[in-house]
Design a protein around this nucleic acid. Structure first.
Lengths: 198, 198
DNA sequence: ATCATTTCTTAACTTAAGTGAAGATTTTGA
DNA sequence: TCAAAATCTTCACTTAAGTTAAGAAATGAT
């Protein structure tokens, strides 16, 4: 077992222990269940049209969710360290509408519903964690959405600089642009405008 | 027990039975726990600055979530029949940033976390329902957000006409406008433009 | 180190949303 | 029923985003 692997397991257990305490037994269950995978930058973890039941939990790196509309990539989400994502197709049992790709070399914990079910049966505590996490995620998602609706593209960019400054460094601008709901040219112009104002 | 009350209980149980079957016992638990309240149009169920631990589940009518920024109402959500909402302040234990008001005369099932905890203990099945519902809500919220980001104000309005035509009838336009992320004047002009195009 | 590819910038022009202000229309309550 | 309040529309003007197109800069692969 390489030391990096153990480090990642600890990150995962620490994260879960924010919500419920874990016994050694329970930690071992996680160690056995969660599959930790390494991906190179640019790897497509999920492609449009494919079926999957996998959820992704980012231990290191950054993944991007996007789809292609009229030949253009529309980026809808970025997930970085300690953020998790379940594609809609996992719940709908349909082919995926979305692509998921690695913006950087990334380490991802992958889980599947049947794994989860088993664990829930053995340790109901895990279901509680998932429920609480889900409830928090809903609030987060709704709050982000509300902030987005009520601000101009420029405010959104300034807000992103404040809330997730790392993304601006890590991610190509044309991907950030559609994440902000604007065109790459507009983002470029906007940045020039903002620098000018200072 | 008035017949309308019983009707509402049935609506609630039917809704839950979409996800898990319920025994009579379990239905009774719901009947005893959930508090069903009647509100007049315009009632403020939750005010900015107030603390609450209540979640709302709309049995009939329509509620609106908004906050006031620079003296202007910013509407972030509408919930109608069979939709539920937990304000962020319930999870954060802070005074509410948001108002919740009734767009119409409404019948709302109100629940609190301590009720939920008790029920979860007695019937773990309910925690499963809540987890599944939450997971679905996350997807829904993220999908809505993605659609919003990738469309123009006009597309958003056309999409709203398709997806929630009832809202356009039920809700004042100035509230719809901020829900669409635009000014009321722009919505008014846009509607004229759309009618002209036909 | 160099070439090809990807990403970013700039510019001129078009289109639609924001703003401020006024007035029309609809709804509500006494 | 009528006046006040709330809601919606229109107009002229400003501002910023979309579009098209060209070329510069950065990155990656050999």
């Amino acid at each position: 077992m390489n030391p990096n692997f153990i480090k990642m397991k600890n990150i995962l257990c620490d994260f879960i222990e924010q919500f419920v305490p874990l016994t050694e037994d329970e930690k071992n269950v996680i160690l056995e269940l969660d599959v930790i995978k390494y991906f190179k930058k640019g790897t497509l973890i999920l492609k449009q049209g494919k079926r999957t039941s996998e959820s992704y939990f980012v231990l290191k790196g950054c993944i991007r969710v996007y789809y292609i509309l009229d030949g253009t990539e529309k980026t809808t989400e970025f997930f970085t360290e300690l953020e998790g994502y379940t594609p809609p197709c996992v719940l709908s049992n349909q082919p995926s509408e979305l692509y998921v790709s690695c913006v950087e070399d990334s380490i991802i914990a992958i889980s599947k519903p049947n794994m989860a079910e088993e664990v829930f049966k053995k340790f109901p505590k895990f279901e509680t964690v998932c429920r609480i996490l889900s409830e928090q995620l809903i609030v987060k998602s709704q709050t982000n959405f509300a902030d987005f609706k009520t601000s101009s593209p420029e405010q959104r960019y300034l807000n992103l600089m404040k809330e997730r400054p790392d993304l601006i460094q890590r991610v190509p601008q044309y991907q950030l642009a559609s994440y902000l709901g604007i065109k790459p040219e507009s983002l470029s112009r906007m940045r020039a405008r903002i620098v000018g104002k200072k």
